[in-house]
């Protein structure tokens, strides 16, 4: 058993949205960035993994176990962080620890206390009195006080300042040091992932666009720039999408096609570039129909 999470052809249909045929696997010991524009289905996928919503089709395994049949066993070893906290706001930090201890038989009070101290969380303050960054740290402290082998983070960095984000990245890289623990990290702030993610899964409008190593993902595309006169019909055809401005254009192209246009200036695409131009590409594609 080497995969922390395996999704095989997972789907979920709603009236106005459907997630279809999502497959990816996160090997244990690594960090996977889960990306896509808002509304792409990231949170839906995470809720499916946690069995908060039921899949319409496919299979989900966590630690090699079925996520519905062995739900409690999986959750015992999974830490979850959402974009906003899930505690009762009237609880104090101390009470949050007491409630967590009720549910997690592997809860380590000493570890929780140490983390609370480390993050300078005031034990007797209510959750509602904590800043957003503090609330995130409280969720992390909870996630890390019960011997989690998998961390699932859903947009944890939205609303965090750069210092707090850097601290989070440090924490995650520490978390995977032993090679046994893994992280699934959903975010739309991709600079967080640009560096530490080992794998990327990119979904868009409920469909899987890419899953694989981050290096392959980034090197599969090039960002090209040129003057407006360089934007020939062939170039336009081969670009995934582009934008023009008064002095030229910028667009995204598949790396293998860049050889066809040696006169164009090309550079490494960032994850953001790829998301933005892929998104734009799908929109123009739609409007052409």
């Amino acid at each position: 058993m080497t995969d922390a999470i395996v999704l095989s052809n997972v789907s979920k249909s709603y009236l106005d949205f459907s997630l279809s045929d999502i497959s990816f696997s996160l090997p244990k010991g690594y960090i996977m960035g889960f990306i896509g524009p808002n509304g792409a289905g990231k949170t839906t996928t995470i809720k499916l993994i946690l069995n908060m919503i039921k899949r319409s089709g496919g299979r989900i395994n966590v630690f090699g176990l079925d996520n519905q049949k062995d739900e409690t066993e999986i959750k015992l070893h999974t830490g979850v962080v959402f974009d906003s906290h899930y505690f009762f706001e009237e609880w104090t930090v101390k009470e949050v620890g007491q409630v967590m201890a009720l549910f997690f038989s592997n809860w380590q009070p000493a570890l929780f206390e140490r983390q609370v101290q480390q993050h300078q969380l005031p034990l007797n303050k209510k959750v509602s009195q904590l800043s957003k960054g503090m609330q995130l740290k409280l969720m992390l402290a909870c996630a890390l006080s019960h011997d989690a082998r998998l961390l699932i983070l859903d947009e944890p960095t939205s609303g965090l300042d750069p210092v707090a984000r850097e601290e989070l990245l440090e924490l995650l890289t520490n978390f995977i040091q032993d090679g046994e623990r893994s992280v699934l990290f959903s975010t739309h702030i991709t600079s967080d992932l640009e560096r530490i993610a080992d794998f990327i899964t990119f979904i868009h409008e409920g469909r899987l666009i890419y899953t694989g190593t981050k290096d392959d993902f980034v090197s599969a595309f090039r960002l090209v720039k040129g003057g407006l006169e360089d934007l020939s019909p062939e170039v336009k055809r081969d670009l995934i999408s582009f934008r023009t401005h008064s002095s030229g254009f910028e667009g995204l192209i598949h790396a293998e096609k860049i050889g066809l246009y040696p006169n164009l200036f090309a550079e490494d695409a960032t994850i953001d570039n790829i998301i933005v131009y892929t998104y734009k590409g799908s929109k123009t594609h739609e409007s052409n129909h």
């Binding site: 690594y30 960090i31 440090e170 890289t173 560096r195 530490i196 993610a197 080992d198 290096d215």
Partner: peptide, 10 residues
């Protein structure tokens, strides 16, 4: 990877 804040795969 941790010290340089980069991917383990790298």
């Amino acid at each position: 990877a941790r010290d340089l804040r980069i991917s383990v795969l790298t």
